[in-house]
Nucleic acid binder design. Sequence first.
DNA 1: CTGTTAGCGCTTTCAC
DNA 2: GTGAAAGCGCTAACAG
Lengths: 335, 335
Amino acid sequence: MGFNNATQKDVAVRAGVSQTTVSIALNPESELNIPVKTVEKIQKVARELNYTPNRFAKALRTNRTQTLACIIPDIANPFYPALVKGVQRASEIYDYDVITLNTDGIKEKELHYIELAKQGRYDGLVGVFFNLEAKHFNDLAELGIPVVRLESNARAQTRQSFDNLFVDDEAAFAEITELLIQQGHRDICMISGKGGPEYLRVSGYKRAVQKANIKPFIQLEKDFNEDGGIAAMQGILRRKTAPSAIVAANDLMAIGCMKVISTVGLRIPEEIVVTGFDNIPAAQLVSPSLTTIDRFQGDIAERAAKIIIGRLNKQVIGQGQTIKQPYKIIRRNSA
Amino acid sequence: MGFNNATQKDVAVRAGVSQTTVSIALNPESELNIPVKTVEKIQKVARELNYTPNRFAKALRTNRTQTLACIIPDIANPFYPALVKGVQRASEIYDYDVITLNTDGIKEKELHYIELAKQGRYDGLVGVFFNLEAKHFNDLAELGIPVVRLESNARAQTRQSFDNLFVDDEAAFAEITELLIQQGHRDICMISGKGGPEYLRVSGYKRAVQKANIKPFIQLEKDFNEDGGIAAMQGILRRKTAPSAIVAANDLMAIGCMKVISTVGLRIPEEIVVTGFDNIPAAQLVSPSLTTIDRFQGDIAERAAKIIIGRLNKQVIGQGQTIKQPYKIIRRNSA
DNA sequence: CTGTTAGCGCTTTCAC
DNA sequence: GTGAAAGCGCTAACAG
């Protein structure tokens, strides 16, 4: 096949030094010292020959692959592309490759990828794991493979073996609910899927309404998607006359809900307002555009990747941190 | 660090054979023959020790990395996640890793990734290249790195060094325009961005309207996105009274256009109909849901990855093919 | 049919 | 300061 890439040996010959010297000169982290002059010469020759290190040889020797795994439920879910991009943005800077892996939210697959990581295929992981607990990451920690979990419910552990970046869903839902209350709404329904993020989001809503002496009204459906939103709104209309505000657990549900609302001829936001969560791209495409909460997934993921890389380079040390990340309400036309 | 993974040597010792025999036994493609009994024994031991080949050692030795690059303009563009998933689907089966790379549609980055590929970082490429010509892929072909281009305008070349999977945009736009004509529309505007896919899509539209003796009316804006759609529709309304139908060059433009339409108080589809192209997820989320054309990007990308892998395994040989892929009009509520 | 040997490109002792 | 040498785990001649 013949890739004709220049090797350290080629550089060494041309620079009149040994291959070892080239290796040391080109790896500034090395303990060993080489005179600046020699280093410069080697760098010059390396450039001339268009030398690039062979990452497989390096990986074989060092057990470092220069690749990160970005593990998410589903790249086709509109919430995740921005997250993936954040990981890529950080990784590119440090010349890490990133492999994106879909778990479909299934425990089996989540564990499978952990297994691959244990085999040394990835230097670190940043990911969203729906079904895994702290203990599943212990082996990784022992092997020196850093993990950053995203979106994980914020149960900070003592001696936690991974970092955890999370948004305070509870506070976010309390805040957006309060906003509606301030606008004068008293009949506010929350719709949500079941499981996973349900608990904290519903809690936030409940806290806000109860504080204002409003009785909570919650409509749960199976899925956190458009169909779930449709079903939820239909359920609400079956049980009572339309409320004046809907707080949806995420944007997809909100959008499904809006469809039903326009079908029955109610006007948004004049007769009923709707809010979402996630700020997916479609949120500004629908009519009226959706008022929602941005979680800055891209920024969070970028920070996560930087933490991973920092740990790999020993610039970040110590126990895993659980770090709260900001959110922001995005006012658009639906509320 | 200590990854304690079993190696061929470990398996060899335990099975009482040489390491070489293990290598041969575990690689069925090998020319060499080992008695079935020995092979089975080795497989058994390998399983017991939970042996997995070290892909970096393998890569170093064979110049085969078991990874594919999936090169796209932007994972955050809603058109691409389905495509990426298709590549992943095929790759997973054959245990290839896939690295997704964003070019932002910039020639410089497209070339950069080609360069990385030439260094042997990826065994093959499937990608969407906006700014590259046939000649840019010649080196790759010589190195034995197969490439499948997606979405490339179908200029089949003799002795083409890569495969090309494309959808016949011209035919698709002619067909959807004809559909509108059949519904009785005579005042049909096309809106499009400039450059890239503009030419073929506009051609299809033109062909259909001219065949029906309708004068083409085309509104071009800079970008193929929501803003482009908004600007285009505003431009149309400035120049004439609203047409009865809009054919948009893609879904994002269609959605932008629909926003303007509802702002000025026209009803879709009663007073004006709109069609898109791509069938992005948002197409069924907007109200009314968007009639559009599905390009089955996931299936195409899956097929592309299979071709790559087929070529790597010498199951696909010969010159690069240019293959037309199907499309399908998806009738929803906007037209 | 199976084992011995060399070596892919790199990092890392260990001598000098 | 620099070089020689070993070896990461694997495949591919080559012998036997």
